[in-house]
Structure formats: structure tokens, C-alpha cells
Design a protein around this nucleic acid. Structure first.
Length: 691
RNA sequence: GCCCCUGUAGCUCAACGGUUAGAGCAGAGGACUCAUAAUCCUUUGGUUGGGGGUUCAAAUCCCUCCGGGGGCACCA
């Protein structure tokens, strides 16, 4: 039997469940169900990556042991997956992998030993002991490169650009993986079969990365600095570093190097790794090199999918308050509607926009008005006109003319070939990860059947005894098409597909029907349809949106009052649409003042920043940094009166504290944005407030 | 800075170098009643980012400019 193994990344047990986790896992689940229908013996892995310094730190912060910490996070994730029907019980993943499990330790260590046994393509030992030294940021859990930190004058300890805290000089013994020996081999492999890495644009990035030269990779940490990990075989002082540990989960989970799990020989031959585009490189360059080193065959496909942006196309983030909340999705939307939305809306491999409004629109237009309504009107007519009995769709020759009068082609073959073609094309698209386009095809068929019904007007046919067969044919064709559609959409919307299927009066397991084998006419005549019920409820857009917005506001207020005062008040934006207003009180939170520029100078090595000292009528002038250096000569600004946001939280830039912000218009002149500093025509007093 | 991708209707996306560049949503008008205010018909809307070039033929290939996104290593 053909096998198919699909994996999501194992999610780092550092952050609580979010849309990204949900999305990738849904996609994997859809593909897995699809392949199963197509007759593959499938295996579906998801899970959590539970080692590393970040986990250790997070645990310390929460007053837990690392194990307690990862137990908590992985349980949360499992809970979410269960609620979305992605767990084993609901036909979802086969294993929820956890890297803290014993079998994984065994497997990862076996992998290490196997690598040690071999030689690199250039005849060297793949792993050697070396010395790793660098500036280390604990919250980032990473050594920082030159452009990732900055230094304050008078100090030689650099600060992390992200966390604005001092870095530690870390110098430690480390095992290195001789990645530098694998570049040529990797390039050859990619060239040989480029489709292994998709989409193409991402593959190009990987190729150019390899071509730029690979450096050896540190694959261990000393236990004294990172203890939370898989011990390096034969060296008590080291634990494996994240990537080797984490990536190996894909094989340890199916029994590589351990006896607890099974399936490696069976499933590894055809594996698809779904990854976010941000971790593609690790899944190609590093992972492949590890596998080559261990003499294990490479994965069949690595597919990097895009990220979800907000409705306006901005990155989602806490500061913008534009994150899609899992709880909101759960509260207002059917699981299948969400599944449909993510598969239909995002062109797989590209970034997509996710807004609650778009989701409602899709659910209403495609599901409620489209598929739901078609099934509803069809079944309703069967009940009303035929007492719930499915009549044969055959039209006898003597009735051809009647059918023609009603606008119905007596020969159903035309519709049959449309359906077959749609099915074939759907499968082709699906096999090629073109889910959005595959689904679109189904909806052209729905429109076609809707049109057939409108043309034939069953409500008039019923009044004419001579049109009994025409009416039967219309109803049968609609029903039979619904049967096909149910089977095709099953991977994307399992519950709904099952519901529709059952309403057609069928009771075999749709999950096991191979769409390839669909044959027109297999819906038996004289059978009774099932109990009719609406499959996709129409969503009240106004009501739901206003509730979401209201709750969002409440949540923000709660967060604002519990978090450090003032921090979030200035950079928050309305969560959803542009019909929102701020109150006058909101405005007053921003303290805009007139200040006079006393000092203005360039900052060494910073091409955009200018350093100002601005008199706001306070005891001493404020130091403010502003990105105006590309557009203004420092001298020309001295003496100018400018508008300053006076109560902005100070922040460090280039090692200097900026205690406010200078307001400027952002102008488009065709060459890009240019700022124009706000000024007054009248003479204004220093320190005056704008209101 | 170097490299990659991308730009098509108001929005989201299609279109082996080959008919008059198409769908869906949104908008306007009409029809209908089986259906979840649904469906059907008609209709508005395009200098395919700009400019050059190759070709019998360009959204598609090449050059260039402009805009958007992304990659340039040890962070899942």
C-alpha cells in the first residue's frame, strides 16, 4: 500500500496556542484526510519541541520546573487541537510528538551516533569538538551577531537590540557539525529534483543561502549553561542543541533509533514536511545535511507556507492589537467554516489576510448561500414534491421534448463530463497543494446546478404531469452532484461533508470514498433522503462584528490597566474597521508640547538618526532621537520650534535614550516617504500644550 | 549593500507566448419563489505599475525605472 507521512513543525513549547499553530495543523489534517481518501496509508505528526534555554527560562519565571512548563503548554495545544477536531479521536493526528519523551532521547542519541560513524562528502568527521564564543542573549537564547546588538558609550558590554539588556560573553566548548562539507551535495540534490522544496521562490532563497557558503553548526551546549536537553552520547557535559534534537523528532516518532515506536521503514520513504517559511532553511539545509550524514534518505517534499496577516495586510502582533484570537474563532464560527476559510482564502505558499469580516463573508457567501443553500433547496424539493424519495433521473425518449422545453438537456452526459472534469482537475490541484484553486472549482459546479434549477423551474414542473420525468431528472442531478461534492470537500470540511452526505440518505463512511472512483448514477433511486437540516448557518455580520469589537475593547482596557502604566496607550490601534473613533479622553492621553531645538547633531554610524536636545520648558532639555538625518541638515533645525510627544515612554536607540518624539508629516513625493517637521506660523511659547 | 519574489477590475485571485485578459466578492438594475434576505439574468468596472525591446503575436520573454514583500545562519 502506498504510504504518506505528513508533519507539521513541532511547535516550540514556549508560546501558548495561536492561529499559526492552528493553521499549519489544519492544513496537515486536510492533506492527511485527502490522502487517506485517495487510498494512502497515512501517518500524521504534530507536537511540541520542548527543550532549550528559553523553556528553562520561562519555567523559572513561572516558578515551575521545565517539565511542568512544557506539560502545561503541550496540554494547552492538545486542548486546542481537540476542540478543532484535529486530534486522533476525530481522525486527526496519529501522534502528538513530544521531545521530552524517552523514546525521543533514545532516537536522537542514535542519530548522533550514526552521524559519528560516517564521513562527510569530503572525507572528514561530521562532528568535531570546538569552541564556541560570542555575545549571548538569554531571552533570545542566542548568540548575537554584530548587527544584532549595539553598544552604549562608555561601556563595552553590548545590549541586545530586541530586549535592550546586556549580553553575556559566553565561551564554551561545543560540538560542531561539519555543515561546510555538505554544500555541494545539497545543491546537487536540489538541482536533481527541485520540487522537493516548494514554493519555488523559497527554494531560490535556500539555494542562494547554500551558495553563499555554509559554516559549521554548533550542535551542542554545555550542560552547565543549558541543561534542559537530550544528553550527547558519550559526553556527560553536553546536551544536544535545539535543531538536531528538534528535527530528529520526525524520525524518532516513527521508531528511528528506538523500540517504542514503529513505522520508520514504512512511512519515511514518502514524507512531506509542512513548515512556516521562517523555518524552511532549518528543514532543508540543516535537516538534510544531518540526514545525509546519518545515511538516511531525504524527505520527499518540504513545503513552506505563508503567514497570516491582518485584514489590512499588516503583521499580526500584540502591539497592534490585531491578533486573531482563538477564543473568538471558537465562539462565533464553525470549525469547518474556519477550515474552509484558511484553505480557500490563502493561496498556499503565499501570505494571506485574515480578518473576521472576511471570514464571515466567506462563510455566508460560499457556505450558507452557496453550498448550504443548494443542499437545502434540493432536499426541500425532494421532500415537498416527491415525499422524500429519490426518483430515477432517467428521461425516456418520449419525454425528450418536454425536457427540452424546460431547458433541460435530456442527456445527462453533459453534466457528467463537467463533473468528471471538475473532479480530475480538483485532484490535480489538490495533489499540487493548490487548495484555493481546487476549492474554487467546486463552487463553479454549485453555480451550475443552481442555474440548472433556476432554468428548469421545478415549482412549475410540478404542476405539469407531463414534466414528471424532467423534474425527477433535475432533482436527481442536483442530488448526485451534491454527493460528489460531499466526497470532494470532505478533507476540507469533514463534519459538514458528512452531514450533507447523510442528508442524501447515505450512510457509508465518506472518509473512505476515493473521489477517483466516483461514478455518476450510483446514488440509488427509490431511496429515501435523510433528515434535512441546515448545514451552514448564516452569520449575522453586524452583530458578530460589533460583539467582537466590543470584547476587544474590554480586553484591551483590562490589559492596559494591569500592565505597566502608559506603555500601550499610544501605539494601540482599533482592532478592526475604520469606523472607530477615539474619545477626547483618549486624545488627552497624548501630551503634545511645543519645544525648541537647542542641539541637533548626527550620530556616528547611524545614517537615519539625529540626536536632538529640545527645550520643553522643563528643568532641562530633553534628549530625543528622530529619523530625520536623511532629509534635514542638523544645523537647519536648531532654533526651530517643533511639536513633541512629551509622554512617550523613553526608549533606547543606538545606545541613547530618546525621551519623546518629534511630530512630522509623512509625505509621498514619488521617491518615497519624506518627513516634514510640524511647525507653527504664529509665534508659540515653549512648553505650550496642543489640544 | 547583494540576491529572490511580486505588481492584472474597488477587493481576493485566474489566464501552455496565441480568439475580444477572465472568475468570485463588492456595486447598479431586473426576474423568480424550491431554498438559509437565497437563486437566476443583465450590467458598471482594465493603458495587465511606467517606459523601451524581441516576436507574425506579450499580462506572459528580455532590459530599465517605480512600488510592495522576502532572504542574507545557529531564534520554534
Amino acid at each position: 500500500m502506498k504510504t504518506f507521512y505528513i508533519t507539521t513543525p513541532i511547535y516550540y513549547a514556549n508560546s501558548l496556542p495561536h492561529l499559526g499553530h492552528l493553521y499549519t495543523t489544519i492544513v496537515a489534517d486536510v492533506i492527511q484526510r485527502y490522502k487517506k481518501q485517495r487510498g494512502f496509508d497515512t501517518y500524521f505528526l504534530t507536537g511540541t519541541d520542548e527543550h532549550g534555554i528559553n523553556i528553562q527560562r520561562a519555567a523559572e519565571k513561572e516558578g515551575r520546573t521545565p517539565k511542568e512548563q512544557v506539560d502545561y503548554v503541550s496540554a494547552e495545544l492538545k486542548k486546542m487541537f481537540a476542540e478543532f477536531g484535529l486530534n486522533t479521536e476525530n481522525g486527526g493526528y496519529n501522534i502528538f510528538m513530544r521531545t521530552t519523551e524517552r523514546f525521543h532521547y533514545e532516537g536522537a542519541q542514535t542519530l548522533w551516533r550514526e552521524i559519528l560513524k560516517n564521513k562527510t562528502p569530503k572525507g572528514n568527521a561530521p562532528i568535531y569538538k570546538g569552541f564556541y564564543e560570542g555575545w549571548f542573549c538569554a531571552p533570545c537564547a542566542a548568540f548575537k551577531l554584530e548587527d544584532e546588538y549595539y553598544t552604549v558609550e562608555g561601556s563595552d558590554i553590548p545590549l541586545c537590540k530586541i530586549h535592550e539588556r546586556p549580553l553575556d560573553k559566553v565561551s564554551e566548548e561545543s560540538y560542531f557539525f561539519r555543515l561546510s562539507d555538505y554544500g555541494d551535495e545539497l545543491l546537487r540534490i536540489i538541482e536533481e529534483k527541485p520540487e522537493r522544496i516548494r514554493p519555488e521562490a523559497r527554494r531560490n532563497e535556500v539555494v542562494s543561502f547554500i551558495k553563499s557558503g555554509l559554516q559549521d553548526l554548533s550542535v551542542s551546549r554545555e550542560k552547565k549553561s543549558v541543561s534542559w536537553g537530550v544528553p550527547v552520547p558519550g559526553d556527560e557535559n553536553h546536551v544536544m542543541y535545539v535543531w538536531l534534537d528538534a528535527l530528529s523528532n520526525y524520525i524518532t516518532a516513527i521508531g528511528y533509533g528506538n523500540s517504542e515506536k514503529t513505522g520508520f521503514d514504512k512511512y519515511w520513504q514518502n514524507v512531506t514536511h509542512l513548515v512556516g517559511k521562517d523555518i524552511l532553511r532549518f528543514h532543508t539545509v540543516y535537516w538534510w545535511a544531518f540526514l545525509l550524514a546519518a545515511g538516511i534518505s531525504l524527505p520527499e517534499t518540504i513545503y513552506a507556507h505563508g503567514m497570516w496577516l491582518d485584514a489590512e495586510g499588516r503583521k499580526m502582533g500584540k502591539t497592534l492589537g490585531n491578533v486573531i484570537e482563538i477564543e473568538v474563532l471558537q465562539k462565533y464560527f464553525q470549525v469547518d467554516a474556519i477550515r474552509y476559510f484558511v484553505m480557500r482564502e490563502m493561496v498556499f505558499g503565499q501570505d494571506g489576510k485574515f480578518g473576521y469580516e472576511n471570514l464571515i463573508d466567506r462563510a455566508n457567501a460560499d457556505l450558507a448561500s452557496g453550498l448550504g443553500n443548494l443542499s437545502s433547496r434540493t432536499l426541500s424539493m425532494i421532500s415537498k414534491y416527491r415525499d422524500g424519495l429519490i426518483a430515477s433521473g432517467k428521461i425516456r425518449e418520449s419525454n425528450y421534448l418536454n425536457a427540452k422545453r424546460a431547458g433541460i438537456n435530456a442527456d445527462e452526459q453533459e453534466l457528467v463530463s463537467v463533473l468528471q472534469h471538475t473532479r480530475d482537475e480538483f485532484l490535480r490541484r489538490f495533489d499540487n497543494f493548490e487548495f484555493s484553486q481546487a476549492l474554487e472549482l467546486i463552487w463553479t459546479v454549485i453555480a451550475r446546478i443552481d442555474k440548472m434549477i433556476s432554468d428548469a423551474k421545478p415549482w412549475e414542473l410540478i404542476k405539469d404531469e407531463n414534466q414528471a420525468e424532467t423534474l425527477n431528472a433535475v432533482l436527481y442531478r442536483a442530488l448526485e452532484t451534491l454527493r460528489w461534492i460531499s466526497v470532494l470537500i470532505y478533507p476540507v470540511m469533514p463534519e459538514s461533508a458528512r452531514k450533507i452526505y447523510a442528508q442524501l440518505g447515505l450512510n457509508d463512511d465518506i472518509a473512505k470514498i476515493n473521489p477517483e472512483n466516483l461514478v455518476w448514477g450510483e446514488l440509488a433511486a427509490n431511496a429515501k433522503i435523510g433528515e434535512t437540516q441546515a448545514v451552514f448557518p448564516r452569520l449575522d455580520k453586524k452583530k458578530i462584528m460589533s460583539e467582537i469589537v466590543e470584547n476587544g475593547k474590554l480586553k484591551m482596557e483590562n490589559e492596559a490597566s494591569t500592565e505597566n502604566a502608559g506603555e500601550k496607550t499610544t501605539n494601540e490601534q482599533p482592532a478592526t474597521n475604520d469606523e472607530q473613533f477615539i474619545t477626547i479622553d483618549d486624545f488627552y492621553k497624548v501630551e503634545l508640547k511645543i519645544g525648541e531645538v537647542k542641539v541637533c547633531e548626527r550620530i556616528p554610524k547611524a545614517d537615519k538618526l539625529l540626536r536632538f536636545e529640545i527645550d520643553l520648558g522643563e528643568e532641562k532639555p530633553r534628549q530625543i532621537l528622530a529619523g530625520l538625518a536623511e532629509y534635514y541638515e542638523p544645523e537647519s533645525l536648531i532654533g526651530r520650534k517643533v511639536v513633541v510627544v512629551a509622554n512617550l515612554k523613553p526608549r533606547m536607540m543606538r545606545g541613547l535614550e530618546s525621551q519623546g518624539m518629534i511630530c512630522a508629516a509623512s509625505l509621498e513625493d514619488g521617491t518615497g516617504e519624506k518627513p516634514a517637521v510640524a511647525t507653527f506660523l504664529e509665534n508659540v511659547d515653549i512648553g505650550a500644550r496642543l489640544k
